[in-house]
Amino acid sequence: MRVLALAALMFAFGMAVASAGTLEQVKARGYLGCGVNEGTPGFSTPDAKGNWTGLDVDYCRGIAAAIFNDKTKVRFTPTASQERFAALQAGQFEVLSRNTTWTMDRDVSLGLEFIGVDFYDGQGFMVPKKLGIKSALELNNAVVCTQTGTTTELNAADFFRTHKMKYKILVYQKEAEYLAAYDMGRCDADTTDKSGLYGDRLRLKNPEDHVVLPETISKEPLGPSVRQGDPRWADLCRWVLFALINAEELGITSKNADAMRNSPSPEIRRLLGKEGAFGRSLGLTDDWAYRIIKQVGNYGEIFERNFGMQTPLKIERGLNNLWTKGGLMYAPPIR
């Protein structure tokens, strides 16, 4: 069905949009098209005035800042999970930045190209604080609640089997019932993707009485993707993501970006366009990364703004910390 819809859309809009020259088209049109989630806290949510916020949103704003020196030149298209790939294929936007798990099947059989990971998600457990548990390995003989899904039950079963622990799993059809059952203490733990757990926590009676355990029991790397067929456009999008991560590693923030331009460090000078001609090779100006960081901030700033301790979600960096701080965020060098 989805394949049919995709084929129909591709036929209707023609494959021309997928050919080379995406950057030129975007420049000529004057704004970037960006496909986002209809509303998931932390990733992309519109406010009452139609202003979008979130990690996925900020990534697209970064691309706009690099191209137009104006982070507002983005048009966001909310798209449902079933139609996201077809919409990208059909040319409704140039970047799909919609908390999408990078899997082999999607990468090789849907005619799109994942350009990196901007959020390492994975299934985890949430427990009430009063249980006094610090690790998922202490969940022996626990009752675990979840919603019927394709892989959550399997991941949980694998985890308990691997660690030779007993457990009981309760599977509910709807979110409302499973959250209510967890809130009433029917289960010791709630399990789903971690970013989902933090969202669940906001909907409990007393969110601060619950804690997400550190273990991650499945891999859900989320990242933006583009259409196959324009390697230059894919390069540009990939290096915008790398610039965000490199900037954090080098300590460049939206506040100190101006001052950093005078830094003696060659790495910083290359990133901010004082040395080399890296921007021109991308079809941009050499201060492309400076524009991004000045207007949107580095990866760490974006993460804190959307998921951090100052937000209701209160998600810790964990795997999404820099590789130098025990996380997985690692970008190739600019040189």
């Binding site: 019927t148 394709t150 039950e153 399997l154 599977v171 509910y172 059809q173």
Partner: peptide, 20 residues
């Protein structure tokens, strides 16, 4: 029963098994 998680036929078979 699928609403409250009792694992009868529809819940485990026409639910989870079908999904998988």
């Amino acid at each position: 029963a699928i609403a409250i998680g009792y694992p009868e036929l529809v819940s485990v078979f026409a639910g989870t098994v079908l999904n998988q």
